[in-house]
């Protein structure tokens, strides 16, 4: 006998989905409006606010900066975070327990505080140029995510597999790339996506570190909103959503989403 689903359950599910997706639908509609102010439902249909993104040079520049920060920051975080996670798991028995906590501490500290302290130390004290300060900020921001996610993968990795490879004559450094890395691949990809999205979305840390001529997209969005209340904001949001969807489709097609969910 097929299970009957209670109508109230269906209604409840619909409400939850509406609550989750409603704002996105509104943004999508608003971005198509022909008006010079944000409105929903859209009045008239136009793509001119999408064109407007490219006409405003600040958006063009900040999209590039945001992508640079997300790509490079995540890359550096992976280069630092994967070996750190490896060491923390490989030598878990002989390392003090607080050490792994130390690496996730930045998640617990409010991002505003991290942003401000980076401004004080890196920008003011050391005089690091804005672009580099931003990169340092974004790298620091995502390292804890890399370590957490890669550690989760390594926790289920049997290190005697690595020892087996070494005993068969494989150099330890080479073994890391030929044996360990392929087996934590899903964790590394998940860490990359999570870090990339965290970096692209970041406001709190970037807010303190952006400077003359160099800003990230979310900061530019805020600045734009203070002066104009036109649907450009909505259009940028839609473009960002599309980007995320494209990334997810690529992941799904090449690896399967289960890899990320794991």
């Amino acid at each position: 006998m097929p299970t009957r689903i209670h109508p109230l359950l269906i209604a409840f599910t619909v409400v939850v989905y509406l609550f989750l997706l409603g704002p996105l639908i509104i943004i999508f509609g608003a971005s198509l409006s022909d008006t010079t102010y944000l409105t929903f439902p859209p009045q008239g249909l136009s793509l001119r606010w999408f064109e407007n993104i490219w006409e405003i040079s600040a958006f063009r520049r900040t999209i590039v900066t945001s992508l640079q920060m997300a790509f490079l920051g995540t890359l550096i975080a992976l280069i630092i975070g994967i070996p750190a996670a490896y060491a923390l798991n490989r030598h878990r028995v002989s390392l003090p327990a607080w050490l792994s906590t130390l690496f996730v501490l930045p998640i617990l500290v409010p991002e505003m505080v991290i942003g401000f302290s980076l401004l004080r130390s890196v920008t003011v004290q050391m005089g690091v140029p804005v672009w580099y300060a931003l990169l340092i900020g974004h790298t620091l921001l995502v390292i804890p995510y890399v370590i957490r996610v890669v550690s989760a993968s390594l926790a289920s990795f049997d290190f005697s597999v690595e020892e087996a490879a070494i005993s068969l004559g494989s150099h330890p450094a080479k073994t890391f790339f030929t044996i360990v890395l392929p087996n934590i691949r899903s964790g590394v990809i998940a860490a990359f996506i999570l870090s990339f999205i965290t970096s692209i979305n970041d406001v709190s840390v970037s807010l303190f570190l952006t400077g003359p001529g160099i800003s990230t997209l979310p900061i530019q969005l805020l600045a734009h909103m203070e002066q104009f209340f036109d649907p450009t904001i909505a259009s940028v949001s839609v473009v960002l959503m599309m980007l995320t969807i494209v990334v997810m489709i690529i992941v799904e097609r090449t690896l399967g989403l289960a890899v990320v969910a794991k």
């Binding site: 005697s160 597999v161 087996a164």
Partner: peptide, 9 residues
Amino acid sequence: FQNYALFPH
């Protein structure tokens, strides 16, 4: 090894 330690990939 006790747990075989085969290369899973």
